[in-house]
Each structure stands twice: as structure tokens, then as C-alpha cells.
Amino acid sequence: MDFNNNDFPLERAKTIEIDSLDRVSCACEAVVDAIKASDFANDEVFAIHLALEEAVVNAIKHGNNCDPSKKAYLTYSISGDRVDIVVSDEGDGFDPSNVPDPCCDHNLCKASGRGLFLIKSYMDLVEHNDSGNSIHMVKFAKKEEKDR
């Protein structure tokens, strides 16, 4: 995995393959259930779930152009106070710096384009690989706020 943040704990990672939008929620639920059983507070589970859904939908819809012969790969690792998630697709990738800001006044009424913004807003660390077809997201648990 060619990310700058190289401390992804691969030895504990699990991978789920997803080939269509219909399978996204089910795959994400499996990850979210595992996260719920760890040290993350409800707000953090919500944040991770949202980022996860957005990343996998983006991978299938925009990365793979909904081509059923292509897959998205959801790899995750839960390690104490940290969850690492990598979502990759089989598309050509994109330049995340070219994605318009959905919060600008002239984009506010557009019906799409909020997925990456939400991922960046809700996760603690977000990075793409050089080709732009893989995203690595990290969320840290704040244990003292578990009861939220």
C-alpha cells in the first residue's frame, strides 16, 4: 500500500470485496459491527460508518463506473484505539485536489459531490495513493468519551 502513513497494521487487516452498490451497506455493516465492539464511542462509530459508506460508494460509482466486472476492496484493521480503513477500486484514479468544495456558495445546491468532503470532515487522517484509486482513512478512539 503506497501511502505516506505506512503504519497500517496489515497483519491484523481483513479485506472484503464488493462488486456492486447493492452490496455496499452489507459490507460496511460488517465493519461497523466490529468497530462497535471496540473502544469507539457512538459519535465515532457514526463518523466511521459515514466515511466508510461514502468511500465504498465512490469507489464503485466513480472509480469502477459501476462496472460489475470490477471490484472495490475494503480493507480494515481495528487496533485498540485506532481503526484503519483502505478502500481501493480498479479504476484509473483521480486527483483529489481537483474535487470542488461542496460548501462554496455556488456548489451548495448541487445534488452530488459531498462524499470526499464528509470523509475528510469525519475522519482523523485521510490520504490517497499516488494514482488516486485508493484511500486510507484513520479514526482514533477518544476513550474517555465512550458514553457519548
Binding site: 460508518h49 459515514l50 459508506e53 448541487k110 445534488a111 459531498r114 462524499g115
Partner: peptide, 12 residues
């Protein structure tokens, strides 16, 4: 819980 796709529908 909802995703950004639902936000898109609300805007439409």
C-alpha cells in the same frame, strides 16, 4: 443514519 446520496435527493 443517512448518506450523502440522500442529501442529493433532498436537494433535488
Amino acid at each position: 443514519f443517512l448518506s450523502s446520496a440522500m442529501l442529493g435527493l433532498l436537494i433535488r
